[in-house]
């Protein structure tokens, strides 16, 4: 680990002051379950680490006047899981439970989870985020969608697909006194050159809150295909949020895949299959098929197409209140 300066501000304004405009110079510590490992391996080498865990405004879960729920970026995953306001968003709770790690859930935060860096082993072994070796290399766990550009890693966030499915927004603060609300759906991007981040934040901006809109009768679920029960990342995942009319017909749907593309992958195709129809296993299967219809697997990961399809199918069934099958 490179020696670094450590700052532990108490206010959002102080955080902004401590962040450098220059990429890579400062990093935000929001739990550290990812950052510390990256620093130990010298994959990131900030001059200053800004701990946001001691900023009280980032540590609470509140209901806003419009019925939205605001979750501070530094709220731990266990606190999110335990909070009654989140009960109406099972997709989020299911995603957190899937992490299956007391340590990661107790120490990790919602903001940190959303902003975590890809698990891609080329990246973690120091070959960069866009290593040209991935296309014909050990790419079993890499992207099967959205992988025609230089980025072939998968976005690792387990909660982002649910947040996108629920139309959540992020409150982004900085530079200086700027404040803006960014839909989670517009937060991620697929980098085109080395050094670009996987999201749209500038180096001197940070995520302060995650805002969940009122549920308004929607149902939602996350389904992850996991190799084992431990804290390993899923092989494929999907979140679905469904709005039904009074007769069991899907009026609107959001389907978002995780662990399959450099960004959480919004499947318009799957949503189109669902709209105007009654959910049953056959429809969910068709939606799953539609979600992977444009998949372009790499040399070693064709199996992920099947897993992504199953994840979508089961997330839809779970959101609709049916048995999903599987374990």
């Amino acid at each position: 680990m490179k020696a670094f300066e450590y700052a532990s501000p108490r206010t959002e304004a102080e955080i902004v002051d401590l962040l450098s405009a220059e990429p890579g110079k400062t990093e935000i510590l929001a739990g550290g379950t990812d950052l510390v490992g990256l620093m130990k391996k010298m994959i990131v080498t900030p001059d200053r680490v800004v701990n946001i865990m001691d900023v009280p405004t980032l540590r609470s879960i509140d209901e806003l006047p419009d019925g939205s729920v605001s979750i501070g970026a530094a709220v731990t995953l266990d606190d999110v899981l335990a909070h009654p306001y989140i009960d109406i968003y099972p997709a989020i709770k299911q995603a957190i439970r899937g992490i299956s790690s007391m340590q990661l859930q107790a120490q990790g935060t919602l903001g940190g989870e959303v902003c975590q860096r890809p698990r891609c082993w080329f990246y973690r072994n120091g070959d960069g985020l866009l290593s040209p070796d991935v296309a014909e290399g050990a790419n079993e766990f890499h992207a099967i969608l959205g992988n025609s550009g230089p980025a072939k890693f998968v976005n690792s966030s387990r909660i982002a697909p649910a947040l996108i499915a629920l139309d959540a927004q992020l409150r982004v603060v900085g530079p200086e006194e700027d404040e803006q609300f960014v839909p989670v759906a517009a937060f991620f991007r697929s980098p085109h050159r080395e050094g670009q981040r996987e999201h749209v934040l500038e180096p001197n901006q940070f995520v302060s809150h995650i805002l969940l809109p009122p549920i308004e009768g929607r149902t939602c679920a996350t389904y992850e295909v996991r190799h084992g029960e431990g804290p390993d990342y899923p092989l494929a995942a999907a979140a679905a949020a469904l709005q039904f009319d009074g007769f069991g017909i899907v009026r609107d749907a959001n389907v978002v895949l995780g662990q399959v593309a450099p960004m959480p992958w919004i499947s318009q195709e799957a949503a189109d299959v669902l709209r105007g129809r009654k959910v049953d296993e056959a429809l969910a299967e068709t939606a799953g098929q539609a979600a992977v219809s444009r998949a372009t697997p790499l040399s070693q990961n064709e199996f992920k197409v099947q897993l992504a399809k199953v994840a979508v199918k089961r997330a839809i069934l779970l959101a609709a209140g049916y048995e999903t099958g599987g374990f």
Partner: peptide
Amino acid sequence: GAFVNAELADYKLARLGD
């Protein structure tokens, strides 16, 4: 020839639930 999963995060082992 790089040993790409030479970390416990990537070198998968059985956990209690498995």
